[in-house]
Amino acid sequence: MMNRQVGGEKGRGMEIERRIIKATWAHNGNLEPLYEVEDKEDEILVTFDLPRVSKENVAINTTADMVEVIAKMSNAVCWERWGVVQKEITFQAFRKQIRLPEPIEPEKAHALLKNGILRITLPKIRRKVLINIE
């Protein structure tokens, strides 16, 4: 009972902070890329917008329920006049981990990087049975 209460308060505290400091950039120089997850019946399609990134600098890791992308930018950027803390940071990579809505088969996944958009196709784990109509 005690643990649940403490956990609850700590949880709420973290949630409140995230409402004030919710950023698409991090102090370690990582940017959060824009992304989209699409459920397409037999597969899950995840796309990322990765400007300034070439194929050789993208690493994609997936497990049955998660996909992670780490992509190094070909030119790092430092926006020297932005904000207070941000102006000191050199942004050099995108990084994002996404929890998938359904389990997928990592070995059958494939990806394409075109015009700066990374499209990852993740086949769902499916055992299809054909049903006959009487």
């Binding site: 940017l31 400007p51 950027v77």
Partner: peptide, 14 residues
Amino acid sequence: NAEEIKLKARDLMQ
């Protein structure tokens, strides 16, 4: 400048 514009436009796009 397309790539830099995309970088700067991320937050407004979201």
